[in-house]
Design a binder for these strands. Structure first.
Lengths: 245, 245
DNA sequence: ATTGCTCTTTGATGCAGATCAACAAGAAAG
DNA sequence: CTTTCTTGTTGATCTGCATCAAAGAGCAAT
């Protein structure tokens, strides 16, 4: 089920300025354009199985995917949420360490691993950008460790909503005018997997935050945030939300 | 309290082949040698405060340091354990995101940030190695997310011992001949901060693992592991311990 | 030897979140 | 319109770990 029809120009790409190719000059981009190919995945489909040989790396162009780890007895923990422009795969490693699953329909811009590695060795701009993105991912993972290890269920939910709001808002921390609203890209169960909770606890805490006026729900997915500061307070973050750059 | 007397040659450095300089040629090493300087920190001393301007980056040469995050009400979560050869600091970022604290006496090989960044831009070997190390750190952080989000207290303790054993053994997963023993570099409280537990729970689970013959204790710090497979089983990891490379 | 540390162990009790269970609300299929 | 499936909500109960509390063990200083 692959849609290979789209032969988009890199210049028009919606993630051109944020993905691993962000720093590339036009000639470098032209070379990438030659080796790239698009793949589409349906919602629910597994993109990469943990332990499998990785034959490609790539960027999420549209849609949302998750990175998860599963124990033998079935306990699951999501270890990353992949939004458009996020990079998938690890150059220099043969086997995937985590499952990658499409949560919505996903289009990826892929490169076979070997040509990409060669390209990376020859193109410092790609390696530089990948380093920058990896350092960001590492900081995000470490923030998540605080959440998983020390926050209460209520704080976890508030943090998740705040983080998704921040990422959807294009990294603007504050946006006081008008009421923020966030379209949660996750089911209750996926939220639970991300937060280290059960889906019942997620549901209960969502209801509690709604009852206390911290959020409003419109359907199951659309969350409105009347007061972002209030939400951040509930999240237990210091006021600035931890954006340093 | 800085010991600046040691003017070690990079060629003799104990972390020469594993640190950020691992891939450097002799001429590159010579340039690094010119801008490096050593700093010593006493056990318990804070090396970097979260939020402070980072004026230097560097590698742990000897000793053990921790990376921690603290909430306003005092809840703490360790987000990284820094052993010799690990890199501290983030090129391209002005302020530190986490506290770095010396757990034992620590010697660091430091570079002022700006010269190091310049050097990195000019020396692909350094950037390459840093990318590789950062990707490893990211994988480790994600493994830790599974531990924090889904493992029981007993599994957490077993996992910690297994991971430290693996790192101390120089990344050899198995070493069946003779009994493994591990010198825990952490107090019970530090273990608790790392595992998202209280120190009482850590103490209880250590006692339980000892009672069940999974480990033996010699003093408070020295742990002997009669059967590594048994320990890995208790850790809830799949048998291979997750080493992919 | 005694005092005062810090670190660790162990016990008693309480609670946040897991587990078990039932039901509601759409949405898609017949 | 009814059936079935998926997803979410809510209630009742259980339990693993936190919390509160006290005491032991090792070690340095006096």
């Amino acid at each position: 089920m692959q849609d290979l029809s789209a032969h988009q120009q890199c210049g028009d790409c919606p993630i051109r300025h944020r993905a691993v190719c962000a720093r590339c000059e036009t000639d470098e981009l032209a070379r990438l354009e030659q080796i790239k190919y698009y793949r589409s995945f349906q919602a629910g489909q597994t993109i990469i199985w943990s332990g499998d040989r990785m034959e490609f790396v790539g960027s999420v162009v549209t849609g949302i995917a998750t990175l998860t780890q599963t124990m033998e007895d079935g306990r699951r923990q999501m270890v990353g949420l992949l939004l458009p422009s996020d990079f998938v795969g690890r150059p220099g490693r043969a086997a995937a360490a985590f499952d990658v699953t499409a949560t919505t329909d996903v289009v990826m811009c892929c490169f076979r691993k070997k040509p990409f590695e060669d390209m990376m060795a020859a193109t410092p701009h790609i390696a530089q950008r990948l380093l920058e993105m990896t350092l960001d991912d590492l900081d995000a993972a470490r923030e998540w460790m605080l959440l998983l290890g020390r926050k209460t269920a209520r704080e976890k939910i508030a943090s998740l909503i705040a983080i998704i709001a921040r990422r959807e808002a294009g990294l603007q921390v504050r946006q006081r005018k008008g009421m923020l609203s966030v379209d949660l890209p996750l089911t209750r169960e996926e939220m639970a997997d991300y937060l280290g909770l059960t889906l019942e606890t997620v549901s209960r805490q969502m209801s509690a935050l709604k009852k206390d006026g911290v959020i409003t729900l419109e359907g199951n997915r659309l969350v409105r945030i009347p007061d972002l500061d209030r939400l951040l307070e509930e999240a237990g973050d210091d006021a600035d939300g931890g954006m340093l750059v």
